[in-house]
C-alpha cells in the first residue's frame, strides 16, 4: 500500500558549509526510480528524517529542473538540525515529500517581482530568488528586500552584492542594528518599502519571515495602491506530519502544510491580523 508517511532513503552527495551554523545538504534518493520520479516546485518542502532523532520540514532550494541532486539549506538550531549539521558525504537520511503549495511563479512571469524576507536567509525565499535569478529575462524588474536583526547575521553578503549589480534589479538589505562598515541600510527592512518604486499595475510581491514583519510589509505596500491579491506569503508553523493530519500547523481553518505554506494574502488577511492564532 502507498504509505504517505514512510520516508525514502537518501544520501548526502555533498555537504557545503555556508556560514557558522548554516549548511547545505546536496542529496539524492538511493532508489533511482524514486529519484527519477521526484518533482518539486520552489516554495515546497520535504520532511527530513535524521536517524533516531526525528523529522523536520525543510524547503527545497535547488532548481526544479536540476534532476541530478536536490538541495536543502539548513540552519542548525535544535536537536534534529544540529544532527544534520554533523552529516558528511555518503551519510544517509530519510526523505519524504515534496509537500505544500509553492510560489505562484506562473503568475509572476512577465511581471515585476518584489521579494521581501526577514530573518536569517529565510529558506523559502532562497528558492524563489535562485529560481528567478536563473531565469532573469522571464521576469520584469526584481526587487530583493532582506531584513536582518544584526548586521553580522547577514549570510551570502557577496550574493546580495552580485544581485544588486544585475540589470533591472534592486537590492535593499537592512539591519535593525548596524556596524561601522555596514554598507546597507539600518532599520527595519519594511521601513524602506517606499524606496522600492513599485508599479502597482504590474508587480507581484512574495514574502516570508516573521509574521510581524509581514504585517508591517503589507502596511507599507498599501501606499502604492497594490491590490492585495498581488501579495503572496509563506507561513511557518510547527509541522509533524506534513499531510494535514497531525493538526499542529493549523492557523484558523487552514492546514499550513497542505493549504500553504504559500498563501495569497487575502486568504490569510484576517488570520494574520490576530496574534496567537
Amino acid at each position: 500500500m502507498d504509505d504517505p508517511l514512510l520516508p525514502h532513503e537518501a544520501e548526502v552527495a555533498e555537504y557545503i558549509r555556508e556560514s557558522a551554523g548554516i549548511f547545505t545538504l546536496r542529496l539524492r534518493f538511493r532508489d533511482p526510480a524514486v529519484h527519477a520520479g521526484y518533482r518539486f516546485a520552489p516554495g515546497q518542502f520535504n520532511m527530513l528524517y535524521l536517524y533516531g532523532a526525528g523529522e523536520v520540514p525543510i524547503s527545497v532550494v535547488s532548481d526544479p529542473l536540476d534532476d541530478t541532486l536536490f538541495d536543502h539549506t539548513i540552519r542548525a538550531l535544535g536537536r534534529v538540525t544540529r544532527g544534520f549539521a554533523q552529516l558528511r558525504a555518503a551519510d544517509r537520511l530519510g526523505i519524504r515529500g515534496p509537500y505544500g503549495r509553492g510560489w505562484p511563479l506562473d503568475q509572476a512571469r512577465g511581471r515585476d517581482v518584489v521579494i521581501i524576507t526577514g530573518g536569517l536567509g529565510c529558506a523559502p525565499a532562497v528558492s524563489l530568488i535562485n529560481y528567478i535569478v536563473r531565469r532573469r529575462e522571464e521576469f520584469g524588474r526584481l526587487v530583493i528586500m532582506q531584513g536582518v536583526k544584526h548586521a553580522d547575521d547577514l549570510i551570502w553578503a557577496e550574493r546580495y552584492r552580485r544581485w544588486s549589480q544585475m540589470a533591472q534589479t534592486q537590492v535593499v538589505v537592512a539591519a535593525d542594528v548596524g556596524t561601522p562598515l555596514w554598507p546597507w541600510q539600518v532599520g527595519h527592512v519594511t521601513d524602506f518599502i517606499g524606496q522600492a518604486h513599485i508599479d502597482a499595475r504590474k508587480t507581484i510581491v512574495m514574502m516570508c519571515g516573521p509574521e510581524g514583519m509581514m504585517r508591517a510589509a503589507v502596511g507599507g505596500l498599501q501606499a502604492y495602491g497594490l491590490p492585495e491579491s498581488a501579495v503572496w506569503l509563506s507561513m511557518e508553523r510547527s509541522m509533524q506530519c506534513a499531510v494535514g493530519r497531525c493538526g499542529h500547523c493549523q492557523i484558523g481553518g487552514k492546514f499550513v502544510c497542505k493549504d500553504g505554506p504559500v498563501f495569497n494574502y487575502p486568504q490569510v488577511r484576517e488570520l494574520l491580523a490576530v496574534r496567537g492564532l
Binding site: L6, E9, Y51, R92, G94
Partner: peptide
C-alpha cells in the same frame, strides 16, 4: 508506531511501514 527503520553497519537505512 507508524514505521520502523533499520540501520545496517554501512549506515544504510531501511524503512518499513
Amino acid at each position: 508506531t507508524l514505521w520502523r527503520v533499520q540501520r545496517a553497519d554501512d549506515g544504510a537505512l531501511r524503512f518499513s511501514a
